[in-house]
């Protein structure tokens, strides 16, 4: 393992701390890449390319900043470049906003149903499925904030969007997840009530 390599063996031209600081974060980068791509093979490509780019630009990393944030930013850019969706994303987000609004219209039913099952220990697979179903622009924010514990400001930097957009996507993403989770729970027989059209 490279992480076990003695520091003295690293030549001056190679970033001496790269093995310690960056390689250690590969689990986080892989998990983030999985959430972006929703495909194991694509995620591996993103991780591989992310680390290659990170290594080549290691000299630009500011030691006092969060290396996970830096790696997530690179991974996000690699993902966007691979999908060539940078330009399409805004339009997709606009479309999905209507979906989130529709989900909110059933919020009373969603909250009423989920309230009784949120503490179940077997809810994990349904939550994972609900997260995977989120549109990419919402999912990336939810993963960064709710899974990877990044503050709003970091999520904004990683995704290259204003912090207000992080807030709105996070809100809508969470509401969509709750709606999807309630549907999963209903389909699994955990909820018997039909959606009510009443709003909050």
């Amino acid at each position: 393992m490279v992480t076990d390599a003695p520091r003295a063996a690293v030549r001056p031209s190679a970033p001496p701390a790269f093995t310690d600081a960056a390689i250690a974060g590969m689990d986080d980068v892989y998990r983030f890449a999985r959430s972006l791509t929703r495909d194991p093979s694509d995620a591996e490509d993103v991780v591989q390319d992310t680390y290659l780019r990170a290594f080549r630009s290691w000299h630009t990393f500011q030691p006092e900043t969060d290396i996970r944030r830096w790696l997530f930013t690179i991974a996000r850019n690699v993902f966007l470049r691979s999908r060539e969706r940078g330009q399409r994303e805004v339009a997709v987000d606009d479309d999905q906003s209507a979906l989130a609004d529709a989900a909110q219209a059933q919020e009373a039913w969603v909250r009423g149903g989920l309230d009784s099952i949120l503490d179940r220990t077997d809810l994990g697979p349904s939550i994972t499925a609900a997260l995977a179903e989120l549109p990419e622009s919402f999912r990336a924010v939810v993963v960064l904030v709710d899974i990877e514990d990044q503050p709003y400001e970091a999520a904004a930097e990683v995704l290259g969007i204003p912090i207000g957009t992080v807030r709105s996507r996070l809100f809508r993403g969470r509401k969509l997840m709750q709606h999807s989770l309630a549907q999963h729970a209903r389909d699994a027989g955990l909820l018997s009530a039909s959606p009510s059209r009443s709003s909050v």
């Binding site: 390599a5 030549r11 190679a14 790269f18 892989y30 591989q48 290659l52 080549r56």
Partner: peptide, 15 residues
């Protein structure tokens, strides 16, 4: 994957 990444980085000069 971890090993593949490390191998790639070594070819780039890591370590």
């Amino acid at each position: 994957l971890r090993e593949r990444v490390v191998t790639t980085l070594r070819s780039e000069g890591l370590g």
